[in-house]
C-alpha cells in the first residue's frame, strides 16, 4: 500500500510538472526512459532469479498448480476479446496487451507507453490499477457467490502481494500458497507477454 501511494505521488507529480513546464529542447526524454525501462526489466529479472521459492513450489505440487494461472490468462484474454467487439477504436492487439498487465500496473504501463505510446500507456495504468481495486473491493462477494479461485484469478499478478491479505482473509490461509504462486507466475509473464503481443508486426 505504501508503495502504491508513492507510485501515485510520482505519477501525479509528473502530470503537474508536464502541465506547467515544457521539456528543455534537445532533452532526450525518450532515450532516457527507454534505458531506465531496460534497467527496470533487468532488475525485475534479478529479483525473480534470486527468489527461487516459486520454483521449489512447482516441484512439490506437480503441474496442476499451473491450471489456475492458465485459467486467469485465457479468461482475461477471452473477456477482453469479447469487449473488442464494442470498443472499436482500440485494436485487438492493444486491448490484449492492456489486459496482459494482470493488475501489474507499474511495469505494464511503462512497457506499453514505451512501445505503443503514452495514450495506451495511460489506459494500461488505469485499467490495471482498477483491476487491483476491483479485487480488493469485491473479494468478499466473489468468495460468497463464486468460490475461492475467483478472487485469486481476479487479482492477477497482485495475488502475490497487494491483494494477498484480503484473499487470505476471505478464502482462508490455506489458499495463500496457491495465491502467491499464481501471482508469481503472472508477474514473471507480464514483461514477457506484453512485448511479444505488441512486438508482433510492429517495426520499431
Amino acid at each position: 500500500m505504501k508503495n502504491s501511494f508513492i507510485i501515485l505521488t510520482f505519477f501525479i507529480a509528473g502530470i503537474i510538472c508536464g502541465l506547467l513546464l515544457n521539456p528543455p529542447e534537445n532533452f532526450p526524454v525518450e532515450t532516457i526512459s527507454l534505458w531506465i525501462l531496460y534497467i527496470l526489466i533487468l532488475l525485475v529479472g534479478v529479483t525473480v532469479g534470486a527468489d527461487l521459492e516459486a520454483f521449489k513450489l512447482i516441484k512439490s505440487m506437480k503441474f496442476k498448480i499451473f491450471l489456475l494461472p492458465a485459467a486467469t490468462i485465457i479468461g482475461t484474454f477471452s473477456g477482453v476479446l469479447a469487449l473488442s467487439f464494442f470498443l472499436r477504436d482500440i485494436s485487438v492487439k492493444e486491448l490484449i496487451a492492456v489486459g496482459s498487465g494482470f493488475g501489474y500496473y507499474s511495469i505494464s504501463s511503462v512497457i506499453i507507453s514505451q512501445i505503443t505510446g503514452d495514450k495506451l500507456g495511460v489506459i494500461a495504468l488505469l485499467a490495471n490499477v482498477f483491476r487491483e481495486i476491483i479485487t480488493l473491493l469485491l473479494t468478499p462477494l466473489f468468495v460468497k457467490f463464486l468460490g475461492k479461485f475467483a478472487p485469486i484469478s481476479s487479482g492477477g499478478a497482485t495475488s502475490m502481494d497487494t491483494t494477498l491479505p484480503v484473499i487470505s482473509k476471505f478464502c482462508g490461509k490455506e489458499y495463500s500458497v496457491i495465491s502467491v504462486f499464481h501471482g508469481t507466475i503472472l508477474t514473471i509473464l507480464v514483461p514477457v507477454i506484453i512485448p511479444i503481443i505488441l512486438g508482433a508486426g510492429v517495426h520499431k
Binding site: A71, S78, V122, A127, F130, I134, F149, S154
Partner: peptide, 28 residues
C-alpha cells in the same frame, strides 16, 4: 483523460469477468 479512464474501466471489468468465470469453472 476521462474517456481513457472509462475505456480502462471497461477493459479491467472485461478481464476480471473472463478470468473469474474460467477459474470458477476450474474450481467446480
Amino acid at each position: 483523460f476521462h474517456v481513457l479512464g472509462l475505456k480502462a474501466l471497461l477493459i479491467s471489468f472485461a478481464g476480471v469477468f473472463g478470468s473469474i468465470f474460467l477459474s470458477t469453472l476450474l474450481e467446480k
